[in-house]
Design a protein around this nucleic acid. Structure first.
Lengths: 214, 214, 214, 214
DNA sequence: TCGTAACCGAGACGGTACGTCTCGTCTTGGA
DNA sequence: TCCAAGACGAGACGTACCGTCTCGGTTACGA
């Protein structure tokens, strides 16, 4: 078997016919379309192959399991995440919340995200893939907003010593869990929209809460 | 097809052999055991039937799909949720967080919860079943903690008019999304434990944040 | 368990509620109707019970297996077999052939007969039941026709000794196999009708053939 | 669905992995073995698959129903039918009768033949398959014996005109129904063996009967 | 320019679970 | 004791997907 990741090792193989990049794109597009049409439950590798005009073999040459394909298919949506500087920490938090909300309200994300997270509870490799492909892309925004707030003086700078760094990392993790978790819960469990009013209330809670944290 | 819910209509059928309550229990117990051993992904109706010493038919007579069976099997765990009065809102919130955390760290819950939530995105009936069987049981604790705080005077009483009631409901919903969502994210995505220190920090954020919400 | 044959032991049980004779009739009628509608392949005990307005239990109280029920249901049709004296052996043979043909062209017979014969290859009890309920009723006609021909002097009388009787029995068996077998094959395998022209030709062959048998 | 017949269209598909001929053979062998061991009633697709070391899917890819599989499995036995020239029509008829008898006394044939004939009463496609796979192979022997007898001058040649040909075909059909039907009835219903004495008597009846036919 | 290595489509394959069906038995309550 | 209703254990059914394999054939590099 050859490397089962798209273009993973750029300097490995040189001979033979190279994999088609168009095919990669077609498959990921087909996968997202299939998620929209069928949801995760009836999502089928065979169906994706048919949509992409490709053989099943071609899929399995690139992804070992359908959950990995879905992670990659959804991951590109999280590349779009960006955080324009809105001038204040409050506004930036609202921005992050709205960005997350918008992404989770897309049918392909909604259908797939919790499914792969569920499978990741018994599959460490999948969990790692989700982290690098999706979670880290979200976390970036939280880290970025925090750095901006520190530059603006809205938050104190990170202490330089080891313990301080660890405490800062834990705080970032907590904030991230609050933002991402709350938005996910709102969207998938409560099944209600993430609008600007709601985003403002959540941002307010977080901001005030962080101020009182210590 | 006959009613596919255990004991759904108490006054409907009177003739024929009644369904065995022991069988119900055996199936739900077997389902939880199967979740622990296999996780959601390899969870099988046939396996549950075998564990329960029961025919597959008997399962399908009661539950149309395996996700509904799993919801009911997991739901009884959420019956155990209770909130002893710890004397302060801060302590009560910590209590709720810890209760949720303890429940989500159980292997049967961890494996199943996100899976059924994922399927519920394309299945309204399942979503409703999850709400009544699981979500409402969690929400109860949040409502209870809030009422206690209002009795203690830590929180203002609900305004009696219609708009006030709606606003209160929305606030409860927000708090619930924050608590449940954050705990779920911590447990399943960040894959880290919910301990007392973390619970205290989350409770602090919430308490301070709510104070500033106005 | 009680006797599993309809009214088999006339002097056995006296206590308790007696079995309804109407029910017997309703079941056999329903069974024939089911055979007509569904054929043997989709014939179901549950369906027969529903048609008869009767519980499945009631069927199984009378017949141990569905093939036995079907034998009895079809058997009553063979009670109708009779052979009016047409004045000559040739005419009587034609009559037998036509009677058999008419019976085998009925949809309930066509669907069921070969099916139960097929099952009888691995079930001696069923084979016996078929013999007494169906085969003997057919054989009667052949025996009757032969006796009439002997009375008319068209056939020599049976020799009184033991060997002669056995030879006569074997000849009757052969004739019966020819008539019944040929009609069945014509009807079910060749799938063509048994009309008077065909019956005359078969009767002629038999008559001439028997004359030359010695 | 794809063609559900083994190698049905020799010039159709060229792409994709071709079906394994070994697998075909293994399945048919397994089917015959299963018939011998279990009879038709307990014959199972799953069991055949297991015996053949093959997945159930592989069976259903080739045969839509178990009765079609059984027809094909049994059909190859009828390929062995052959009629050595025994020098006279009487001897040749005896030969045909004995051949049929020998085949029908094999356990796989006995168990299966009537079962599929029974199902063919409500399934035209199956009836056609039986005709080409089994009936025609038997009929061949009757036609062959007749041609030999005509060459020997024991029977008059077929008249060349249309009506004569039709009459000849009908006569062949009648003879075939008599031979095959009588042997089947002897074997399956009367459940007695087809030995040389019995064969001689049946052949005599036929020969004399045909002579007197017109 | 030619070989070779990897690509690609189509589809057969072993395996496994699905959800349904029917069988024949058992368990109610009522007649 | 019989009956209608229907739950029950057992197990085959035919389908759907999984992920692998085997074909015939194509495409790009490098020797």
């Amino acid at each position: 078997m050859v490397a089962r990741m798209p273009h993973s090792c750029p300097r490995k193989r040189r001979t033979g016919r190279p994999r088609s990049v168009e095919t990669d794109r077609a498959i990921l597009d087909a996968a997202r379309a299939a998620l929209v049409d069928l949801g995760w439950g009836r999502f089928t590798m065979g169906d994706v192959a048919a949509r992409a005009g490709v053989a099943k073999t071609t899929l399995y040459r690139r992804w070992a399991h359908k959950n990995e394909l879905v992670v990659d298919a959804v991951a590109v949506l999280f590349d779009e995440l960006e955080l324009p500087d809105r001038g204040s920490l409050q506004a930036d938090i609202e921005g992050v919340v709205l960005q997350f909300g918008r992404l989770l309200e897309r049918p392909e994300t909604k259908a797939a995200l919790m499914a792969v997270v569920a499978e990741s509870t018994t599959d460490a490799a999948l969990r790692e893939r989700i982290r690098t492909a999706i979670v880290d892309r979200q976390m970036r925004l939280v880290v970025l907003g925090r750095e901006r707030a520190q530059e603006r003086g809205e938050l104190p700078p990170d202490p330089p010593d080891h313990d301080g760094a660890r405490a800062a990392a834990e705080t970032v993790g907590l904030i991230f869990d609050v933002i991402a978790g709350t938005v996910v819960h709102r969207t998938l469990v409560s099944a209600e929209p993430v609008d600007t009013v709601w985003a403002r209330r959540l941002a307010t809670i977080l901001l005030e809460g962080l101020a009182g944290l210590d």
